[in-house]
Simulated assay, not measured.
Amino acid sequence: MNYKDLLKHVPAPGEVINLAWALDAFPALRLLATTPQDPHYHAEGDVWTHTVMVVNELVNGGDYAASTAEQRFILFFAALLHDIAKPDTTVIDEVTGKIGQPGHSRRGAIDARIALWRYGVPFAIREAICRIIAVHQLPFFAIAGNKGGQPPEFLIRKLSHELDLRLLAAVAEADMRGRDYVGKADCLVDIELFRELARDEGCYGMPRSFADLATQVAYFRGAAIAPDYPFHAESGSNVIVMAGLPASGKNTWVAKHCAALPVISFDDAREALGLKHGDNAGAAVHKAIDDAKALLRNKAGFVFNATHISSSMRKKTLDLLYAYHASVTIVYLEQSEDVLMSRNTKRDTTLTNASIRRMLFKWEVPLPTEAHRVEYPA
């Protein structure tokens, strides 16, 4: 199956759906039928029962009918795959019997990314689906109070730069309607309030405007500033941060576009220290960071070339760069699985293809809110 095959399965508005094909296309969905849920929030039963209800609610909803063909693809697969990681994240308390699936949204986005990547779904469409899955519950809690404690205005402003809030709200509404829950009516009100606040902020279907990029980055990183008034940022280095799985072409891109710039690389640091991949990684990281700090102190431009495939890995690098007031561009690269594996077998490296495949389960594509600029594959 490939992207063209998936396109054929996107239902028309109001169409009676048959999801038997989906269990073959996405085998992980088979486990949903035997995965229990907290009966307080999901009295309808198992995760597959809920998923089918959600997809039906979505396809029969007004947002789906009003969407373009591309948006329907995004909405449909976001709804179909939104709980794909619940089997792997289910925890049942031995004493109380309470059922939880902590982290299923974030893990689900990664699982969906891997599956859709293997099917050749275009990058922008795939990431629109994965970004919805990663935060599909936020409209339930954004107004009433979220775990992170951020004001709802902050969440909506930030999310508007990461995805289309109209599509997020549509999936959230279908997710809530497609369940048997005593608090459903109140949650649907909160989703509508989420929509109204986004409209008030001028970012329902578009990114929230900011005075400039410096203000935008500072705000998303937690500065207590107003989006509409320029934030005076100190000047620092211009840094290009590479991101992408091994063998995705980062070194080639740097050689082609940044030949005159210094390059900070964990691989280079390992080589300078005479280490193999995986040996004393701490020493290589320490050397790379020290070299980067020296350039940052001098406000010199450079390239930070590493995989940076998870948000936590990028955060360590970005926190360092922003501490020195750097202006950051993330360049994200990727290739098909076949290309990655073929390239890796031809490289002079101790990193195996099996190791790259394990890395996929930490694969989080950079978000537009992480840097001043983020360049994605065309």
Results as ranks from 00 to 15, higher is better:
88 D>Q: 13
141 F>C: 06
178 G>A: 07
112 A>Y: 03
70 E>V: 05
99 I>S: 00
115 A>M: 13
180 D>G: 10
163 L>A: 03
92 I>L: 04
183 G>I: 02
162 E>N: 08
99 I>L: 07
123 F>I: 08
129 I>A: 00
88 D>E: 15
180 D>N: 14
132 I>A: 03
104 H>D: 04
62 G>F: 02
95 V>P: 02
83 D>E: 09
87 P>Y: 07
153 E>D: 14
185 A>W: 01
139 P>K: 08
135 V>H: 00
98 K>Y: 11
177 R>A: 02
187 C>H: 06
97 G>K: 07
99 I>C: 06
145 G>R: 09
147 K>G: 15
171 V>S: 00
148 G>P: 01
137 Q>I: 05
85 A>K: 05
89 T>W: 00
162 E>L: 10
118 R>T: 12
161 H>V: 00
76 F>I: 01
179 R>P: 02
77 F>I: 09
165 L>T: 09
60 N>V: 04
139 P>N: 04
103 G>W: 00
185 A>F: 08
66 A>V: 12
56 N>T: 12
147 K>R: 10
108 G>H: 09
140 F>K: 15
148 G>T: 12
87 P>L: 05
95 V>I: 15
78 A>Y: 04
90 T>W: 02
81 L>D: 01
144 A>M: 10
149 G>F: 05
101 Q>F: 10
168 L>E: 00
102 P>D: 07
89 T>R: 13
133 I>S: 02
162 E>S: 11
90 T>P: 00
151 P>L: 15
182 V>A: 15
96 T>K: 06
185 A>K: 13
95 V>A: 14
66 A>N: 06
151 P>N: 13
170 A>M: 06
85 A>D: 11
178 G>R: 08
170 A>G: 04
